[in-house]
Design a binder for these strands. Structure first.
Lengths: 143, 143
DNA sequence: TTTGCCTCTCACGTCGACGTGAGCTTTTAC
DNA sequence: GTAAAAGCTCACGTCGACGTGAGAGGCAAA
């Protein structure tokens, strides 16, 4: 398939796909006239790239990660990097949970029809309960 | 306190604090000569801002959120925005979990000393088990 | 008053993942 | 055979949260 087909099948722009190749994340065969050609595995590759990009990883990190992910194994230095990235993801997860927790407090207070008691309206920097983050979801009024 | 003190107490750069004021997120009193002065509540405010910034919210979103968070309640349109941001956080959480899950697979396979059976080395785009994300953590060898 | 640190306001620089033409060649459809 | 559609390579633009001087003024101690 050519780049337009890959774009259609992955939802990524043609520009993005060329950018991935430039970053050595998405190799391509070239026809005699220079056009890029991909096989079906490229679709999965692009989706894998998107998983990492959307998680906030940089091109460089992904480039370091890819061989291990593809091979299903890793050299010792690669493992170090894997663990570093895993820890970074974990701390970003906790940051997101902290923000979600704050939003949940406000949403709960703002959508509670009974307006319970008179808590101090905003307890500054409350110890975030290390529990789950499933507090004030799905409260959007059904229209 | 002046801006240097606030910087020291929050860990944020002086430039960042001025930027927050520019974004109407951190008001300040000004002395006759134009220097910024803050009271103690500013420390909590900055920390709250960081919670949202680190979660990936934009200045604009935070500006819309802040009144509700401070007041502990919200107008109907504000509630809409609260729910939008909450949903955005949720989907970003899921993206992070997807990436973490992929890394865990690789880490497990790469650090497992027994190299279990002969799974296909990389199952392309496996259905991510909707369960928790606590699979292959804390495997870093104690040095 | 001088030293030294802090603060002020412009205002340009950065970095990363693409967007967006410009100008040209290749492939496809009729 | 020709025109539209798709591809190619530069190469500059973008956006957001600050970093980084430049140049000038403010403030407490000696």
């Amino acid at each position: 398939m050519r780049i337009g087909d890959l774009s259609a099948r992955t939802g990524m722009s043609v520009r993005a796909l060329r950018y991935y190749e430039e970053q050595e994340l998405l190799p391509s065969d070239r026809s005699a006239s220079g056009q890029r050609h991909y096989d079906d595995t490229a679709v999965d590759r692009v989706r894998l790239l998107q998983i990492f990009y959307r998680a906030g990883l940089s091109s460089t990190s992904i480039r370091l990660l890819l061989p291990s992910v593809e091979a299903g194994t890793a050299a010792p230095e690669a493992i170090e990097h894997l663990l570093d990235q895993r820890e970074a993801l974990e701390s970003r997860l906790r940051e997101l949970e902290a923000a979600a927790s704050r939003l949940d407090e406000v949403i709960t207070a703002a959508t509670d029809p009974l307006q319970r008691c008179r808590h101090p309206p905003t307890a500054p920097l409350e110890q975030h309960s290390t529990g789950s983050t499933t507090t004030a979801r799905d409260r959007r009024p059904s229209p």
